[in-house]
Nucleic acid binder design. Structure first.
Lengths: 225, 225
DNA sequence: TAGATTGTTAATCGATTAACAATC
DNA sequence: TAGATTGTTAATCGATTAACAATC
């Protein structure tokens, strides 16, 4: 009965493994956790533990059957079961997501885009219709939409969130750089590009500083020599 | 001399705090870690520890001076020091990033876009020129570009990565769903939207299953009653 | 068989949370 | 002063890594 939930950390690594496995030459029948770990720069025990959770396992000495492992991971990640989503905000980012072919292969179908701007209505973006906001609730119900994707500017995000909740979505994928208020029962995942940028720019600055320090040290040494 | 690096976790939370602080009514002079934690759904000690690392501190009983805290965080995150970047791949996602106004306010300036497709060359996207790939190295050197942003399809990403490294960038922000090979000295940060989707769809599916179980339990109970 | 590799149990590490002393 | 709040030290928790037994 142990409902041991798989960790977010592991969940995020699974698509990485999948990508590596799919990128391997077709001829390779078997693959070891050791080789996966080495290629992806991870610890091999970690890879084995992750795979133990999401696959039917490998065999000592030979490793995992590549083809079977791919199927196991895709099954575990539910790439076969299609989840329907709507997207609100058909700006550039909305465009990018509506047109991204990878979602379909990963179990996500965006059925329509929505926008407050009447100029966008009636258009099609990569085959997906752009509808009026007042068609949101109806569309969600009719198409059994469970996920709402928010790609509007930050000042509009909370209102859109409310409308999506009202329309009955069960999860919200938020690309606006703002914390949303939503009822407990609705799952909210924030993409937070600014958080990402904070990490990148800080780590880069640290490296540059370390370099300057190293240079200064060398110069000082030369001075002493 | 203790070079205790700030954790990625903390780094990712700082922009969140900043967003909350900036969104507060101007009238609020002071703000407590307690209130920040409550609003963002975090532990208050965690917030205090984060703020201790990135700010000059608060005062018992009153908390932090909102305005000063904002300045401290912006300074810590280097929002004032401008980092220059180039972006390769001017598709929809490239468009979105080139046109995102938020980067400039967060210390990142994308100076130009690049694309392999000649049809894109010479255009301007939100005021940024789209150049030919063979202008990449020259532009990076001339403008002292330190960051390369990759927004090309997965099959082209590794080659673009090589070109960026060759052009001398020190960090790569990768939005393609693939693991890049780059020399140690170059910082690579993967955005990995598929990892994000894996978390979202799995957590959603778990909830739905829990609901089904709960329903079944209720039905069983009614049967027993 | 010997050695590579899996999967698990134990140890370590780092981050979160709790307890508490300091202070305005 | 009393109470709210900070900042720090200690305890807990969860994830990673190391050690090792099982096995093909």
């Amino acid at each position: 009965m142990e409902k041991r939930a798989i960790s977010n950390r592991t969940l995020k690594r699974l698509p990485l493994y999948l990508g590596y496995l799919k990128g391997m030459p077709e001829g390779e029948v078997n693959v070891s956790a050791t080789s996966i770990a080495e290629r992806l720069g991870l610890n091999e025990v970690q890879v084995r533990k992750d795979l133990a959770l999401a696959s039917s396992g490998g065999r000592p000495k030979v490793g995992y059957v590549r083809r079977a492992l791919i199927e196991d991971l895709e099954k575990f990640l539910r790439y076969d079961a299609l989840d329907r989503a709507v997207l609100v905000g058909t700006g550039y980012l909305g465009h990018a997501l509506l047109c991204y072919q990878g979602f379909a292969r990963r179990g996500l179908e965006i059925v329509a885009g929505f926008d407050a701007d009447p100029a966008h209505h009636g258009r099609e973006i990569c085959g997906k219709p752009v509808l009026k906001m007042d068609q949101l609730a109806d569309t969600c119900e009719r198409m059994q939409v469970r996920i709402g994707i928010i790609t509007v500017p930050d000042y509009a995000a909370q209102q859109v969130c409310d409308q999506l909740v009202e329309a009955g979505v069960l999860a919200i994928w938020n690309f606006a750089p703002i914390r949303l208020n939503a009822p407990e029962r609705v799952l909210v995942q924030n993409e937070g590009i600014e958080s990402s940028l904070a990490v990148l720019s800080t780590r880069l600055a640290e490296r540059l500083e370390a370099e300057v320090v190293a240079k200064t040290d060398r110069a000082a040494e030369e001075g002493n020599a």
